[in-house]
Design a protein around this nucleic acid. Structure first.
Lengths: 259, 259
DNA sequence: CGTAATTTTGACGCGCGTCAAAGCTTGTGG
DNA sequence: CCACAAGCTTTGACGCGCGTCAAAATTACG
């Protein structure tokens, strides 16, 4: 898990490790890149020093230069309303990519902040773009990644728009579960990287409601939680609540998280 | 506004017209493509016969082969829940692109249906992809388009998740207004292409609530509406409701609609 | 012009937001 | 390592927005 600037030798090994451990898997694993391609991609990936809790990876309006892949820890992305209140747009776990929403305007429409100590890989966009031109498989993969993000956003959009607070919580817990599972962690027992109020902000409910939901879910034996530790006790019921028919299969595509 | 298959000659002129009148503007105008590039792009764009009201451009699960640009009319995209109920994901006006969400899986996660008689341009994706590799400006533009969609979805996501039904309606009406304006139509007076219940479905409120909202908005002098004809009478108040600080400026980027 | 679908209107109840205050964490300095 | 402060979480009380049911009015369409 070292993120030191490892200067030059063993480049392929470095990227392989980055792919597997931290999420470039999304860019290079699903496509057949040969060693030379992987080497090229590897050369543009920049390691970065760890970001402490509450530190910002970038802020709203910052110029866009790179996309980032979470290696360890977790990020939230957010916008600020004119009143200055934070509106959380998404949570980002290891293996997930942030910053794609900035390509359009050339600056970040959302800020990104660490929920806990977090390490990321920086992928300078211009170089990635240039490389994509030369490696069609990479271009395809980049487009797939963005496409996935568009649809999973769409999906979450209406998951949140039409459903009760109870259903929303079930949806998010299962989403996190699936995303942890993808990283090789237990899907039934994990630590929530975000606070209750961040969760409630994200889900568009009051913090008090979130608290009551957690109590209710526990009373009914659907989950057990102590602080941020969570275990899913009755996944079947949660699935019913969430109405998950699509995406039932664990993992097949680029990434499962919300964007 | 002719959409006949105009066979071969005047290709550049055809594309120019397509660009300006129907939305390939999003792919080719903002970048500096020279005539040869435009000519190449033009060659891959397929005209398509008009789609009648309630006809499907594609259905959920259909194989993905092309993206589509709305020329005239309007589309909705939707998913079906396991119960078979339709969940509308977005409305798509002239100049807007649909189908990008299918790149990832290679099949359409959302269906697309005409709200009224609609013409589209078909852009075969493989050829667009291949062309993007040769024309860096086109690749960039494609990425920008997808990036824009990711963010505007994010934005709408939380617009809908956290706000009252009243605010949601204001947001959608202003969004439509802006998108009509971009097409050179009046931003203050236009015809809603979708029914009240489609609007309510999209916004995640009950149809009855939508009806009451329209009445209330009229009583208060914010709008005037007769059937699907709508005119915005008090845009300032609507803007306040919607809380629009961002995106106040009419148009700068790829497209303003929801994805 | 008649039948079906959509829209409107009213009555009613509940989910969830709001306000207020009491625990409980987390972090900092002595 | 403890003490205190600031923030976060929980709990309760209460009211309103909006979903639901039901039925009338209007519109769409063959």
């Amino acid at each position: 898990m070292s993120d030191q600037p490892n200067p030059g030798e063993f480049r392929v090994a470095r990227l392989r490790s980055a792919c597997n451990d931290c999420g470039l898997v999304q860019l290079c694993l699903p496509v057949s890149l040969d060693s030379a391609d992987v080497d090229q991609l590897d050369q543009i990936v920049q390691p970065r020093r760890p970001i402490k809790r509450h530190e910002h990876l970038y802020r709203t309006g910052d110029g866009f230069g790179a996309i980032y892949v979470v290696r360890t820890g977790a990020l939230k992305t957010y916008t600020l309303s004119e009143g200055g209140e934070e509106q959380i747009m998404g949570f980002h776990l290891p293996g997930e990519v942030v910053g794609l929403d900035a390509i359009n305007e050339g600056s970040h429409p959302c800020g990104a902040q660490a929920l806990e100590t977090t390490t990321v890989c920086e992928v300078p966009f211009e170089r990635l773009e240039a490389l994509s031109t030369r490696i069609p498989g990479l271009q395809r993969q980049l487009l797939r990644l963005m496409s996935k993000e568009i649809f999973s956003d769409h999906e979450m959009l209406h998951a949140l728009a039409n459903r009760s607070a109870e259903e929303r919580l079930a949806i998010v817990l299962l989403s996190l579960s699936k995303r942890f599972a993808r990283r090789g962690l237990s899907p039934w027992r994990f630590r929530l990287p975000m606070s209750r109020s961040e969760l409630s902000n994200y889900l568009g409910v009051a913090p008090e409601t979130m608290s009551r939901l957690f109590r209710r879910f526990q009373e009914r034996g659907w989950i057990a939680s102590h602080g941020k530790e969570l275990s899913l006790e009755d996944v079947r019921t949660l699935r019913n609540l969430a109405g998950q028919s699509r995406n039932e299969t664990p993992d097949r595509d680029v990434h499962s998280g919300r964007g």
